[in-house]
Design a protein around this nucleic acid. Structure first.
Length: 276
DNA sequence: ATCACGACCTGGAGGC
DNA sequence: TGCCTCCAGGTCGTGA
């Protein structure tokens, strides 16, 4: 479901929970990513009775800070939702974690496919967590520059599409925005990363930031699962230029958009104005 | 060490 | 209506 703009949208809409105290913690007991159960006992011990002091994001990961040194680490996988419900709201199916707040609201992690992740980390050492340790630069937090991107790309013998999806380089770009950014700079997704020129790298770095910021301004892209912490869908889908638009005319040159598979993921491009 | 692929899950859409 | 197949915003372990 979620790439950087969607996760950032959730982060922002979850902010009204800051200051509230956690009065109850409940779980489904179902395993999540890799069939691993969430460390519920540790989560409960660290969160119960504590106030939420912040909600942060790095790449596609969310961190919910509480009093003390603990933070709840959350990844939404493909179908995960992380929402703030009003008091008494019905509990949706596939709800794996519930944090009841002192005013009756509930933060709930819901994930039918269970590709998501919920962990507990110590803030002081959070970057040592395997999921966070490998993350590259977040385009909207740390920023990415053309020269840096060029240097990264030179050393990799993968397609540019795969390169953009590599979270150890850029943290937060996923399948939608990888196709969108490459369309903007008129480069085929199949182009080898090492063949990216310096000028192209500058344009690509700018395009990555632009597509992410544009989507964020629209509350993210809702294809099927995505809603913010208030349950509201984002309306960025109508602004996508190529993703999910096989057969539709390219907005630049009217050629039919093509769909191909790169590393097992659907990839969209214009065969005319995106150069190999 | 890098890289490509399949597995991990459930549910929705479309074909028959 | 029901059954089947395909597809999905991500990540990780495997084996070449």
């Amino acid at each position: 479901m979620p790439e950087l703009p969607e996760v950032e949208t959730v982060r922002r809409t979850l902010a009204p929970a800051i200051g509230a105290r956690v009065t109850a913690v409940a779980q489904s007991g179902k395993p999540l990513r890799l069939g691993r159960p969430m460390p519920f006992a540790r989560i409960k011990k660290a969160l119960l009775g504590r106030r939420i002091t912040g909600v942060r994001r790095h790449g596609k990961y969310l961190l919910v800070d509480v009093e003390g040194d603990a933070a709840l680490l959350v990844h939404l996988g493909m179908s995960g939702r992380f929402r703030l419900f009003p008091p008494g709201a019905p509990v949706p199916p596939h709800t794996h974690l519930r944090l009841t707040l002192d005013d009756g609201r509930e933060i709930r992690f819901t994930d039918p496919r269970r590709f998501g992740l919920v962990e507990l980390v110590a803030r002081a050492t959070e970057r040592e967590h395997p999921a966070l340790a490998v993350l590259g630069r977040d385009p909207l937090v740390e920023g990415i520059e053309g020269a840096w991107l060029h240097e990264q790309a030179r050393r990799r013998d993968v397609s540019l599409k795969s390169f953009l999806l590599d979270q150890s380089v850029i943290a937060g770009v996923g399948n939608i925005y990888a196709s969108e950014a490459l369309w903007r700079v008129r480069i085929r997704p199949t182009r080898r990363a090492r063949r990216l020129g310096a000028t192209e790298a500058r344009a690509l770095a700018k395009a990555v930031r632009a597509v992410l910021e544009h989507a964020l301004d629209r509350g993210g892209t809702s294809l099927r699962d995505f809603v913010d912490a208030d349950g509201v869908e984002g309306d960025n889908y109508e602004y996508l230029k190529v993703y999910g638009r096989e057969g539709e005319p390219c907005p630049r040159c009217r050629t039919a958009i093509r769909r191909t598979i790169i590393q097992g993921r659907a990839t969209y491009f214009c065969p005319t104005c995106q150069v190999p």
